[in-house]
């Protein structure tokens, strides 16, 4: 029966290959049973018209196929979706602000550089860059959330059963901000993509009304990229682990401290290394400041790790005893 064959085939098209043949064979047999029974009950011939009535009752192929698939298959599930929507909104607002400034800057500088009016080519390129930027950024946000969804699903399956003893204190220094962690992961990915795949776009600027690649990173910088990539990879993995555990733990705090020291070593190597940037002296002065901040951050983390208390210097200044 042609209608049955087409119907069964269409359902099979929406199923994974390992289920397809088996489900198709069973459906074909069941539909034929249904047709025969109906023909007998209504004293009608088992023809194409009856076959159409049977498959119509069965439902749209896509809907039927969906029922054969495992339930709750999400890229981003309902629990994370509100946070995802918020992150997309924030990303769009940031991109809109940055892009608006870029387009405005391109319009003004190209108009100033050319008396005949704005350079349309520069404008078109800038707008194309903006569209591409939106695409890349939204893809990164989606990727981060999809990873979190997988990690959380695994934690729920493999993790221990919840008990009241697991409730954290109201004021909990180890509590994480999920949104903050996601933004940090997004930034790590964004920097990794930029430095690895578009290094020429680091330090891009408008010069005489045109978007110019300034060659900010000198070729020698590439030799440091493996070290930097390892840092970003470890940092991303640490964020994932902390997110999956739901809060900071002693082990992850220790890993954060170790990672901070590793970051400080990379910064030190960049500072003492050969010229790596345009305006190398100036940039390295900034890096020295960053290194000082990183070391300070590591000291604070070490204090927290050893005392298990947050670093609150004003409490010492006030002469109050540290909080228990």
């Amino acid at each position: 029966m042609e209608v049955i064959d087409r119907y069964v085939h269409e359902i099979g098209e929406h199923l994974p290959w390992n289920l397809r043949a088996d489900v198709e064979a069973e459906l074909r047999s069941l539909l034929m049973d249904s047709m025969e029974e109906r023909a007998r009950a209504t004293q009608q011939p088992a023809d194409a018209r009856l076959a159409e009535a049977v498959v119509r009752e069965f439902g749209a192929p896509e809907e039927v196929a969906k029922r054969y698939l495992p339930q709750d298959q999400y890229l981003i599930g309902p629990r994370l979706f509100p946070a995802y929507k918020l992150a997309v909104k924030i990303a769009l607002i940031v991109i809109a602000a940055v892009s608006g400034a870029l387009v405005l800057s391109a319009t003004i500088t190209s108009a100033l550089g050319h008396r005949a009016g704005p350079d349309l080519l520069v404008l078109a390129r800038t707008i194309w860059g903006v569209i591409w930027g939106i695409f890349i950024n939204l893809a990164l946000v989606t990727l981060v959330f999809a990873i979190i969804e997988r990690v959380r699903a695994r934690r729920e399956v493999m993790g221990p059963a919840w008990s009241p003893a697991m409730l954290p204190p109201v004021k909990d220094p180890d509590r994480i901000s999920q949104a903050g962690m996601v933004i940090e992961m997004y930034l790590i990915l964004a920097f990794a993509v930029l430095f690895n795949f578009y290094p020429e776009w680091v330090g891009v600027a408008f010069v005489d009304g045109r978007l110019r690649l300034t060659g900010f990173l000198l070729p020698a910088f590439a030799t440091y990229m493996p070290l930097v990539n390892v840092f970003w990879g470890l940092d991303f993995a640490l964020h994932l682990i902390v997110l999956s555990q739901g809060r900071w733990r002693r082990e992850t705090r220790a890993a954060e401290f170790a990672l901070g020291l590793y970051g400080a070593v990379i910064l030190y190597l960049l500072i003492i290394g050969p010229p790596l940037f345009q305006l190398d002296f100036l940039i390295k002065a900034v890096l020295k400041g960053v290194l000082a901040l990183v070391l300070l951050g590591s000291a604070v983390r070490l204090y927290h790790l050893l005392t298990r208390r947050p670093f609150e210097p004003w409490r010492f200044a006030e002469g109050a005893a540290p909080r228990q």
């Binding site: 069973e26 069941l30 249904s34 029974e37 029922r67 339930q71």
Partner: peptide, 27 residues
């Protein structure tokens, strides 16, 4: 088998459409 099960359920007053019953068996 699927169709006989559908009939058995219907005879006892539980009508269920085939598009729901057969995928449920697989699950």
């Amino acid at each position: 088998y699927g169709y006989s099960l559908k009939k058995a359920l219907a005879e006892r007053g539980l009508e269920i459409d085939e598009g729901t019953l057969y995928p449920l068996l697989r699950r």
